[in-house]
Design a protein around this nucleic acid. Structure first.
Length: 873
RNA sequence: GGCCGAGUGGCGGAAUGGCAGACGCUGGGGACUUAAAAUCCCCUGCCCGCAAGGGUGUGUGGGUUCGAAUCCCACCUCGGCUACCA
């Protein structure tokens, strides 16, 4: 190989070593520079390593970080590992390898891959959620949750010692009262149990009735669990969204997930009983149309009100419902099911007797677990009433007549004294009426449930909690943290919900100072725990005395820019906002919201193939002939299309392979050149070749491939006007595009510049050096090497970002199209500062334009300065 | 079913009220070479035409405007998320 060739492998290794060895990107916590905190979403160190989706967000954030450094900011740009989680544990179950060992191996591999891309992380701040010095503070935050309550009046969390407890309670009642208000509490409610995974899951982890990870069936099962009272923060979580600069789509996802709805709670007397069934409705205006009621099968009143002859059928139905997986319950293709209880309720507005049913389309966990059914104006009730032949009474007149069920707003009919009222007005009136009679009240409900926070796993943070033999729950003291994981022989869950930690006999039992015997909590925390607050730990990663030093926290927070995938919209991003609000309330952090600006990178798709019938063909069965894809075995011509990367389609692109063939700079550049950051885009290896050629061209414009020295064209001479203008246009465009995340167009501008530069006989040194600085955030390795060969002795990472001169950017001459009635007839060139009048004169002087006008009268001439002239006849 | 996003050459995309297709890929032609690779130069939306030139064109149909890929209305297609929350 010639010593001057663009040897990206050697160059990239050289500079990666240089940055690391000299700690070039080590960040200090002080300084008089303004701070900028740019954060990547926490990666899980998977055994499969990086896929091409990771470097997309990371490259974008790295370009921002490098650019901001050059713009004079003190930049915090850290990385670490969200390293607890199920895969390492399942591997342990299969092979007996300790999850810590697997995790370490995976981290080492991913760190190697990430370093190979040349990201400017401060490696002194690397964190790892499985490190005891890290999860000590995860446990500490849990204790804060456990030892806090939410003050509704002040709308904030406060220490549990400040909770006003009613006088005259017994010791046990007092304990219970406090426990019922802790932000972390034990519950025995039915939870999402996944037999396949041997653990329970949070609502957010169950998608379409199956587990989000693995797609296994999930059933409802009552179990003892730890919950976090995230619901107390519903209003704060909603309000905070107005304060942050996030994509509207993500804000909407969070708002919908919190799911605030305003309506009324109404009491229906059960005929012949003292009991009332309370329902929640957002449409109290349809009360006159309530023709039956439905309770969730689990509703406690079912036992009370069901008369003897109906008990057998009701019990059978309840058993069936309990055994159904969530998938069975939510599958819309299935008919509605239900069972009449034999009991009746009295509709409070018209004293009508209406039958009470149970059905699993009513959920025990939302509202009051019972509904009034208004089949004329609710799709679900309509479907149910039609199937079981229950009466349907219309009480809302639609603005325009509709067939079947009408769920919109209109005018009340068949509604006694309220007939004729518009829906909105009716809602207010009827709620007042109900309140006056003591039959109901205005009510707000949220879809968001408390966060199920325990898992029956080994590889997670242990809870700092003890259960005494006499049934008390005692939290460890902060001084006793961290509580580490015990060694076990067997990582397998027991299958009945008893976690693996229950097998660690020595670890399990504890004798308290007062002599009482206690057992440790055997559940562990979910993976989300560690990622809820990692952005705070980066600020002060080695602090043994606090999760984060308050002074440093004040300096660095909030995160100025957070880049990651949209799949975390309602999971991580909601959970970590909740924890942050708690820490804010207790005075440990200084900002109400953690992440000021959020950007979602789009998904990268792989190239895939299907035959004429639409059958998918894995990539290893595809061969190319004359640039067209064919089936290797059948010889059939195939269609190319983009599809989600998957093992089965064999269309996964491995970053290691791309780097070894084209280099990290080409990889980075291609990921950014593909299209807008937020868009979904298909990967195409030929595109990598394109940006790779661009880098080679930039290299050859400066370096002689034979000698490795500067080419003779690079000279210490002033630039010509055109070159200078293009350079300044490039500085301007690239800088502005970085600020607005338009990396693809920034790169095309640099391509235009290099195409020009390589054609020049004289390439002024000043111009060349400035361009290298502009290129450096995108392709830092080649930029450092060129900078070095241009005679500079240290890194360019802290050079000042070049300023452009607006005078030099401006073109001297401008070309305008001349249209007659919107059709282009000619082009004219005028001085850039020509007046509209002058331009008009020149345009009208054109023979072609005159010919197009003919003898018609000119009505109007529109001059749009740098673009065109339109003559209206 | 609901919500969100997107439809522009052979492909990725650019242009967010002002010359549609920047930049890159692919394809074609040429230069260099014994030859090839690499590199460099030229061409490359579609249709008609030998050409000069003309016509047409941003999913479909309508509208607003001197002017629409861009704004408005209706529809079609694709992708993502979500799913009985009363």
């Amino acid at each position: 190989m010639d010593k001057g060739a663009y040897d990206f492998t050697a160059i990239e290794k050289k500079w990666q070593d240089y940055w690391l060895r000299n700690k070039i990107f080590r960040t200090e916590d002080n300084g008089n520079k303004p701070k900028f905190y740019v954060l990547d979403m926490f990666p899980y160190p998977s055994g499969a390593g990086l896929h091409v989706g990771h470097p997309e967000g990371y490259t974008a954030s790295d370009i921002i970080a490098r650019y901001k450094r050059m713009k004079g900011f003190n930049v915090l740009h850290p990385i670490g590992w969200d390293a607890f989680g199920l895969p390492a544990e399942q591997y342990a179950i299969k092979t007996g390898t300790h999850p810590a060992e697997t995790t370490q191996k995976n981290i080492d591999n991913m760190r190697r891959q990430i370093r190979g891309l040349g990201f400017s992380y401060d490696w002194n701040r690397e964190v790892n959620t499985t490190d005891i010095h890290y999860f000590k503070w995860t446990q500490w935050i849990f204790l804060k949750l456990f030892n806090s309550w939410f003050d509704e009046t002040q709308q904030k969390a406060r220490p549990i010692e400040e909770l006003p407890v009613p006088a005259g309670l017994s010791k046990e009642e007092r304990e219970q009262y406090i426990h019922d208000r802790r932000l972390a509490y034990e519950s025995f409610a039915p939870v999402n149990w996944c037999p396949e995974l041997g653990t329970v899951l949070a609502n957010e982890e169950v998608v379409g009735g199956v587990s989000e990870r693995g797609g296994f069936p999930v059933i409802r099962k009552p179990m003892r669990q730890w919950m976090l009272r995230i619901t107390t923060y519903c209003e704060r979580l909603l309000a905070g969204l107005d304060q942050v600069d996030w994509p509207e789509s993500i804000k909407k996802l969070q708002r919908d997930w919190i799911g605030k709805s305003i309506g009324a709670e109404v009491d229906f007397q059960v005929d012949g009983f003292d009991e009332v069934i309370r329902v929640f409705t957002t449409r109290p205006d349809t009360l006159f149309g309530a023709t039956y009621m439905v309770m969730a099968p689990e509703h406690p009143l079912v036992d009370v009100i069901t008369p003897e002859p109906y008990k057998v059928d009701i019990e059978t139905y309840r058993k069936q419902a309990a055994q159904k997986s969530d998938l069975d319950r939510t599958d819309l293709a299935k008919d509605k099911t239900g069972q009449f209880t034999g009991a009746y309720a009295i509709n409070p507005v018209n004293a009508q007797k209406i039958p009470i049913w149970i059905s699993d389309y009513v959920l025990i966990s939302y509202g009051t677990g019972a509904i009034m059914a208004v089949p004329a104006h609710d799709d679900r009730d309509w479907e149910f009433a039609t199937k079981f032949e229950l009466p349907i009474i219309q009480v809302v007149q639609p603005p325009v007549p509709v067939e079947g069920c009408f769920t919109g707003e209109g005018t009340a009919i068949n509604s006694g004294p309220f007939t004729g009222l518009p829906t909105v007005e009716f809602k207010v009136k009827i709620t007042e009426w109900l309140e006056g009679k003591g039959l109901g009240t205005k009510a707000i409900n949220y879809k968001l449930r408390d966060w199920l926070f325990s898992r029956q796993r080994y590889w997670g943070e242990p809870f700092p909690i003890l259960h005494t033999e006499d049934g008390r729950i005692i939290a460890l003291d902060e001084k006793e943290l961290p509580l580490t994981l015990p060694e076990v022989d067997d990582y397998k869950p027991t299958g009945n919900g008893e976690p693996p930690l229950a097998k660690a006999a020595d670890w399990l039992s504890v004798t308290l100072p007062d002599g009482a015997r206690a057992r440790r909590e055997t559940n562990t925390m979910p993976q989300w725990a560690g990622s809820c607050w990692y952005y705070l730990r980066y600020i002060d990663p080695a602090n043994p005395n606090a999760a984060v030093d308050p002074e440093k926290e004040k300096y660095w927070m909030p995160v100025d820019l957070y880049i990651g995938g949209a799949e975390h919209a309602v999971l991580h991003l909601l959970y970590s906002r909740f924890w942050h609000m708690l820490l804010y309330d207790l005075g440990y952090v200084s900002t109400p919201e953690p992440f000021t600006k959020l950007i979602n990178q789009g998904m990268i798709l792989g190239l895939s193939y299907k035959d004429k019938r639409g059958v998918l063909v894995p990539n290893d069965l595809v061969e190319e002939r004359d640039g067209k894809p064919y089936h290797k075995e059948t010889g059939e011509p195939l269609d190319e299309f983009p599809a989600k990367m998957s093992k089965s389609l064999k269309n996964v692109v491995n970053p290691d392979e791309v780097i070894s063939r084209y280099g990290a700079d080409s990889m980075r550049l291609y990921e950014m050149f593909m299209g807008p950051l937020e868009a979904t885009k298909p990967w195409n290896m030929r595109g990598v070749e394109g940006v790779h050629r661009f880098l080679g061209k930039a290299w050859r414009a400066m370096i002689d491939e034979q000698t490795g020295h500067l080419v003779p064209q690079v000279q210490d001479t002033p630039a010509d006007e055109e070159t200078l203008r293009l350079l300044h246009q490039t500085i301007k465009k690239v800088g502005e595009d970085i600020e607005t995340f338009g990396f693809n167009t920034a790169i095309s501008q640099m391509m235009i510049f290099v195409n020009h530069l390589s054609r020049l006989e004289v390439r002024p040194r000043q111009v060349v050096e400035t361009f290298v600085l502009v290129l450096s955030p995108f392709a830092p390795h080649i930029a450092e090497e060129l900078w070095h060969r241009l005679g500079r002795s240290c890194t360019l990472a802290y050079e000042t970002w070049p300023a452009y001169d607006p005078e030099l950017v401006r073109e001297k001459q401008i070309e305008l199209a001349v249209q007659v009635l919107g059709k282009i007839k000619d082009r004219i060139t005028v001085a850039a500062d020509a007046s509209d009048e002058t331009i008009q004169q020149v345009a009208l002087a054109s023979e072609k334009v005159q010919a197009a006008i003919g003898n018609k009268a000119i009505k109007k001439v529109i001059v749009i300065k740098p673009r065109l002239v339109n003559i209206v006849l």
